[in-house]
Structures are given as C-alpha cells and as structure tokens.
Design a protein around this nucleic acid. Structure first.
Lengths: 327, 327
DNA sequence: GCTGCGGGCTTACAAATGTCAAACTGCTCT
DNA sequence: AGAGCAGTTTGACATTTGTAAGCCCGCAGC
C-alpha cells in the first residue's frame, strides 16, 4: 500500500524520459554511480526488492560483469610453482573450500573465467566431454563471439543425459553465441568395421577437418578408477576392457584413449572402435586447456603434463600441492 | 580477545601452503565462490573487517573488475535515437542523477568505461584538454596496454594546474601503462612568427607526425559562453577576441578553433597563433570520442556532430534529450 | 627502560542487502 | 462477467556489509 499510494500520488513509473531497459539503468546507477538500491528504487518508482531483482538479472545476463582477473590468480605461488615445474604456459589454482558447490563446479567455474578471458573473435574451440567440462560450460559467462565455432571433438554417449558431449558443446556455443558443430556419431561402436564405414562418410570427414582446425581445446582427464563410473553411463568401457591397459601402465584416460605415466599412448583393443579426436591431434592444437582436480586425478594430470598435452591447467589447491610433492 | 585467544590457541591460519596474496585469495572466494566475508575471515584467520578492507583493495587495484558492459548502455533508447539521428557509430547516455558527483565526473567516468572497452594493444591515443577530459582520465580504470602511446594534441596552458593538457595526457598514459608523449609548446603564442619558428623545430615536427598517426582521440567541446572561463585560466582567449567570431556564427570551440552551427571552421585572427591539432586533423582520426554534457553544450555538440568531428559521443540524459528536440 | 607515535587490526554499531511468503497484476478460459 | 493462473512486485525480516572509534604492537627518542 505504501508503495501503491506512493506510485499513484505522482509519478509515472519508468517515465517517458526514462529511456530504456530498467535493468541497464539500475545496473549503471548501482555499480557505476554508487547509488544505493533504495535511491534507485525511489528514482525508478519501484520497490527496493525489485531493484534487487533487476540487479540480479543484470548480473545473470551479463549486463554487469564482475570478475577476478585470472592473471591475478596466477600470481599465487602455487600456480607459479606448477607453471615453472611442468613448463606450461599458465595454471590457475583455485582455493579449496568446502562450501556446497562441488569440486567440479568450482574448477569448471574457474576454467570458464580463464577461457572467457582468452577467447578471440574467430577461435575454433574444441570441446571434449566430462563432468568438469560440463561444469565449465554451465559456468561460462555470456560473451559475444559471434564469429566463433564450438566443435564437439568426441563422439556421443548413449547413456546419461546430463553430461553428454553434445550438451557441453551446445551450452558453450550458446554462451559465446557462436556456431555449434556436433559430431554426429557414437563415441564407441561395436566393431572396427563400423568405425571404418562411418569415418568414410563425407559428413564425418568434414567434421574431422574442422576438428583439425581447432586453435583451442578444452578437456578433462579421467583416472583409471573412474573407468567403472564411465561404464555406468554406458559410455565407454567396462573395467574388464580397461584392466589389460592398466597392466600395461595406463594411468589416465584422455579423450577415451589411455596413456601411461610418461604420457605415452597405451594402445588398446578398442582403439579402433573409438570415434573422436586422438591424443596426437590434441597436441596439435595451439591452446590446450585441461580442467581437473581431485585426489584421484593427480596421477592422470601428471601423465597429461608429461605427455605435453596441456598448455593451461585449472585445478585446486590440494591437487596442485600433490602435483608439486615429489613425483 | 575472542579473536586473540582464538588465534593463539592453535592454528597458524594463512599457513605455509597459503600461496599468495590475501587480496587475490579473498577476492576469489568472495566474488567467484560466493562465500560471505565472514566465511573468508574464518578461513584466513583474520577479522571480517579486514576481509572487507582486502576486498576494497582488490576493487581499487583492479584485481576484480566490476563493469557495466557499455554496449548495454547503448541499448538505452536515447542512445539509439542520437546514434540514428546524427549518424554516429555510438552514443552513451548516462542517467541524470543529482548525487554529489559533478556532471563532468559522471560523464568522464562513463567515457572512461567506453574507452577502456575500445582500446587495442597498439593504439595511438590523442588527448585534448578540458574539464571533462580530465575527469575521464581520472576515472580511467587500470588497464594494461603497454604497447599504447598517449599523445597530447594541444599545446600547454600556463594557468590553472588542475586541468592542464599534460596532466590529462600523463594520467591517461599511467592508467593504460602506455608511453606518454607531451607536446612541449604553449597552446597559444603571442605572434604568428613565434608559431612559425616553433613549428619548424624538429621536435615539434616529430610530435605532429605522431599526432597525425593517432588512430583514436578524446576531446571535449567548448561553448562560447565558457570562453570567458577559459580566459580566466589564462589559457586561450579573451572575450574580446572571441566576439568577432561569434558575430560570424561561431557556436563552439573545438581544440581552440571556432566552428559554426554547421560545423564549418570560422577563421579567426588568432588561428595562426594556436599550436595544436586542427579540426581537419581531428576528422582524419578514425575513432573520435567526444565527452560533453550540460545545457550550454547542446549547441556546441550539435555543431561538432554536424561537422562530422565525432564517431562516439558520451553525454547525459538531459543533453541527449535536448539534442533530439527539434533543432 | 619508559613514553609517545603511526599503521594496521579489531570490535561494535548502523546501514544496506538478500530472501520469501503473500499480494497483486494482466491474461485466458468458461 | 467471473474464476483461475502464471508471472511480477512488494513488505517484512534476517543476514550481510560498511564504517569509525579504539586497541595493540613495534619502533624511535629521551
């Protein structure tokens, strides 16, 4: 009632002269002019709660950007130590907190920030598959890069719908408002012959041509322990198939392929049934961002670092520390 | 005491592993992880007030960036109307508020934001002189553009120390961490011969070569009413010198020269005693940002718009409205 | 060794902000 | 016309944040 009367008494809410989007106005008045939400509410003839909502919207839609410059995070000692020791271009180490967000979400968030700062207008960005990559896509701020292409680099899973390769790709493409290019093929097929047939398809040949043109790629890395989880999703492999690889030294899975502690490919029975980017092709991409953290990821991360698959790493405090303790 | 005892009892917070700058750390936890200042204080083992201070520092030093995307401000109808009607590339209209900041400060602030978003690594930025330009320089956020040059395009005044051309230039150069290039000459000299002598100096020839190389320029615009003010500063002209020009239709001063309502140069007795960029040279710069607002600036802004001296305009609500009302 | 001084940290308080259930709008459908 | 409904907006409240006066500590001078 107070509000109603107030409004009725005199002012034309959002009056004629009030030229535009109240979201933009309030964002400006609040973040740039330093007015309080109260002042703004009065000016606009709406309640303070509404102003609060407008500001929320402004943040959500990217009208205002609040960001910690990633280069400052890199000044943290841990980051620099990792960068120096493993000879990569950059490393982001996020603080280990025990809030309600999962580790994946926090790493993904940081990765998104880093990525957002790096994207150039005409980038061709390859996107792999995984829980952390998915979190990264979700956390990606809205940035306009209409000239960009976002490319799915691993075939699709059949199982769970929440972390599919397509979803990672399309979410990310949406956030940058770029072109979204799917890989229309299963991630793993039943027989090598099927793969051979598919790979001969013009559509797939074209797709792999685009994949080879990526100048940037985002991926996670799997531990051998998580293979069983992956198989739950019906995606990749059963532990039965993985065991022989483990026996031959495999410590990590990178885009579905196994590598050993030195980063060397461990050839496997199912390699010729996988459809997706190869580790060698990853290494050919100029900027290669790996997002991964957790105790079980320490060895895998070491492996991809050793293999030279990474130029940028996003991880957390504990994992970084483990990476730095004696091999 | 709570705090003291607590700290003494057991833990080294901010432990060895705490790799870095508490400013960066708290900024990340607060702005990216969404923890409250309380949570952070606990984690870091300091008081919440200190965390608040750290965050303040983080904002001041540019560790976190909070910005309203200028392109959203442009969506405000007024901006669009001005852009359409006068055929310029962009126009920023800031809300008219009656806070404690002056009009100059608010316009300068907005201009700074716009400029910050436009600057490219190798820009050569020309800087004129004026109250609003000065405010722009002060409000400029810290951005690293080490490859940039910032060039003074008008000779120096003798009078007041607060708004000198050198100060505008050097402040701006400092904010972008670019090279600062002064114009070592008076803005106006006593006799044409003096100007001729100066302009033959190799140092000045070089300077004007650099000025001609600007790909971007920032300037204000003077009204004929403000001439008397300018003369107070001992800078430009006396009303006595200006009057004949007014009689011949001058409505605005642009970098010391007078122009009429159509934007045409009004030749004056003192033109050959002014040292600085010419209006024609301004028009040769690709990106030309004009910052100006106020009732007395409406005619002058119309004039520079008519003359095609502007590609980007920053002004306020009232001025934009006046610009849009029938000529 | 005592005393006075400056910087930074803290405590306590006042102001500003976020949240949520309830009220209100502008619709559509009967 | 009236009821029902989805999406906003609002007022009240609990939490979070900003701030300023005071405290503590290390240091220089006596």
């Amino acid at each position: 009632m107070g509000g109603r009367r107030h409004g009725a008494v005199q002012e034309r809410r959002v009056p004629v002269e009030f030229g535009g989007d109240p979201v933009v106005w309030s964002a400006w008045l609040y973040y740039e002019e330093g007015l309080t939400q109260n002042d703004i509410a009065q000016r606009l003839g709406i309640s303070r709660a509404s102003v609060n909502n407008l500001l929320q919207t402004a943040r959500d839609t990217g009208v205002v950007t609040i960001a910690v410059a990633p280069r400052h995070l890199q000044t943290v000692e841990l980051s620099q130590a990792v960068t120096a020791r493993y000879g990569i271009a950059e490393c982001l180490v996020v603080p280990g907190v025990d809030g309600r967000r999962t580790l994946h979400e926090r790493i993904g968030h940081a990765g998104a920030r880093l990525l957002a700062g790096q994207l150039r207008p005409d980038d061709v960005l390859g996107v792999a598959w995984g829980r952390t990559v998915s979190a990264l896509a979700e956390a990606m701020p809205q940035v306009d890069r209409p000239g960009m292409s976002v490319v799915q680099v691993m075939g699709s899973a059949v199982g769970s719908e929440r972390f599919t390769a397509e979803l990672c790709t399309s979410t990310l493409a949406g956030r940058v408002r770029g072109r979204c290019i799917y890989l229309h093929a299963p991630g793993i097929v039943s027989r090598p012959e099927v793969k051979a047939v598919l790979m001969a398809e013009p559509a797939l040949i074209e797709q792999f041509r685009i994949i080879a043109a990526c100048n940037r790629i985002v991926f996670g890395v799997g531990s051998m322990q998580s293979i069983s989880i992956a198989s739950d999703g019906g995606y990749l492999l059963t532990a039965r198939e993985a065991n022989p690889a483990i026996a031959r030294g495999a410590v990590a899975s990178l885009a579905g392929r196994f590598i050993d502690a030195k980063g060397r490919l461990v050839p496997c029975s199912f390699d010729d049934r996988l459809i997706g980017i190869t580790p060698d092709a990853i290494r050919a991409v100029p900027d290669r961002l790996c997002v991964a953290a957790g105790p079980d990821k320490v060895l895998p991360i070491r492996a991809v670092l050793a293999g030279g698959y990474i130029t940028s790493l996003v991880t957390d405090e504990a994992t970084a520390q483990a990476l730095l303790s004696q091999p």
